[in-house]
Design a protein around this nucleic acid. Structure first.
Lengths: 337, 337
DNA sequence: GTGAAAGCGCTAACAT
DNA sequence: ATGTTAGCGCTTTCAC
């Protein structure tokens, strides 16, 4: 077993002090060309790599971003992480990941864990809207960015997300503009505003155009199966909707399956708009009309906020970014009349 | 800004030595009930959390699993990671993730990075088959598990993967058993055996049943677009195949799109078998016949191997697990004659 | 230009 | 049953 090489090993080999080696390797202080060259050569020969842990212990900041993701099984969040990783990597930073799995207690443990690794930067997709755990982080002077999901008093926090209410509003207004007055929505039953905002946006769009919101058209599903059932029920209504807004990406596959099974022809029997852009939405005819969100950019931007704070000390000014969802007009929305 | 609480803080508050506090908090050594109680109370009150970094520096093993994933954009690998995280978490271990993005140099950097965090456990999905970087890890006495992808001299390494050759063989033998002699394959052009094995399995199945392998039926695509083109070309052949084996999950969506665009009716014009089980495969009619792999289990098992080595010191005996892919008979394979 | 020494938070010998 | 001390690998201050 090869022992791992330390500064001390190199110092001995080069017949200098650890201090000198440290300076050379970090490019600090004044060192003669000759010793510099000698040390560099030895370091390479020995395949030296600095021990980040020791550095961190010494008081230097750990180049680590702690990510707390609310659900690692959801491709959406994973794509956010991928964006974080990509941007962090360019800055020589690593990411440590905790999966809160929508569980508050686990979220607490994830945060603690990251903290115990000396992590001073965190990107969190919180499990609920309670600001307390996030404030606790700020009090510890952790650089915290909320990604995708926000908490109450959002203006207190660095954050990057999508304007979901507007996205949903735009989506529904588009449906209305295409002549649909009977617009239904299937959304995830939720406690986070990133999701409930979409129902709000839906209602606002209707309201703006003088269309009353009908309870039987608003379906909040606990899971994929319920969403599928809701779709089938919607189509059995005496006064069926002519358009459906599927407000959650993840439910859409099951809703569409249910629609297919019920024999619904899109868009003739029903116009369909999906919030999000599943990759199968352009494979099977008809192609689905969607509101697309810049997912990876959420991650990239979150990482960039952290980086900006580190490099420019801009912790005090609140970083915020609200992306817009953009309409992808495809085949599943039919113009009425 | 709240200072983070250390052992020393607690020691002072309790009027004992750091050592005593350490012992209490780790449940070691003999401590009187009274001091134990006092210290525990203070620790809770102060919200003390151990500094893992300091522990690791002290020589204790870091409860960290370093993951090096070959492509974070691929849902397959992400699901593997999710399995790792899930299992590791139960053991109180965290994961640190590096994305090699199919780049050898980046893989090297990821590994180095994990090492510099004092990580002694790694799960790697290697970018190529060169055993050298993996052997280097073993020489450092790192617990290394290869996940999904292997390297040359695989028997030297702890590993968990899917028997892809057999999976592909079974898939093709099933097609042949359904009366298909003209079986084409679209696979990813690749250097890793997890992928090339599938082409081998395809060829072996044909050979076993006395069917010659035709070059024009074997299409290796660099990316999704090429795969789609290959599908279209296949259907323009004077002597068209009656069955198609899509050997890579990730290409399947695009191949199916191309097939749809060409107006191919499945399974009447062409029987289709997908290696992998995309979640859309059961949404649109016809449902796709697939060879399903236990993806998350790969991650869980890899983590379990690490845990077993840590807990039972079984580093010396090589851990190995080859999962089988299982046939999901659905609607896209038609019985001929 | 270079070296010596202190100390980050913790644990394990070794006292007492 | 409890305390003292050393030291993990590194950086920083302060000498020389």
């Amino acid at each position: 077993m090869k022992k791992v090489v330390t500064l001390n090993d190199i110092a001995k080999a080069a017949n200098v002090s650890m201090n000198t080696v440290s300076k050379v390797l970090n490019g600090k202080g004044a060192i003669s060309e000759s010793t510099k060259k000698k040390i560099l050569a030895i370091a390479r020969e020995y395949d030296y790599h600095p021990n980040i842990i020791a550095r961190t212990m010494r008081g230097l900041e750990s180049p680590l971003i702690g990510v707390v993701v609310s659900d690692m099984e959801d491709p959406f969040f994973v794509k956010v992480i991928s964006g974080i990783e990509q941007r962090a990597w360019k800055e020589g930073m690593s990411i440590i990941i905790g999966n809160s799995a929508e569980d508050l207690e686990k979220q607490r443990l994830c945060i603690e864990n990251h903290l115990s690794y000396g992590c001073r930067n965190m990107i969190v997709m919180p499990v609920n809207e309670d600001p307390a755990p996030m404030r606790a982080l700020q009090e510890k002077n952790i650089r915290l960015v909320l990604a995708d999901r926000l908490v109450q008093f959002e203006e207190e926090f660095h954050r990057v997300t999508v304007d979901n209410k507007k996205g949903a509003f735009d989506a529904c207004e588009y449906l209305i503009g295409m002549g649909h007055a009977k617009v239904a929505i299937i959304n995830q039953q939720s406690i986070v505003t990133t999701e409930t905002d979409r129902t709000d946006g839906y209602k606002e769009a209707l309201k703006k155009h003088g269309i009353p919101v009908r309870d039987e058209y608003v379906r909040l599903a606990k899971n994929e199966e319920e969403a599928a059932q809701a779709a089938a029920q919607l189509m059995r209504l005496p006064d069926k909707p002519t358009a459906l807004f599927i407000a959650k990406d993840r439910l859409s596959l099951h809703v569409v399956r249910a629609l297919n099974e019920t024999g619904v022809i899109m868009p003739d029997d029903l116009s369909v708009m999906i919030y999000g852009c599943p990759h199968w939405s352009q494979t099977f005819r008809p192609f689905f009309t969607c509101m697309q969100r810049p997912i990876k950019e959420i991650g990239v931007t979150a990482a960039e906020m952290i980086i900006d704070m580190i490099q420019n000390g801009t912790d005090q000014i609140v970083h915020q970014k609200y992306f817009s969802a953009s309409l992808m007009e495809r085949d599943t929305v039919k113009k009425l009349n």
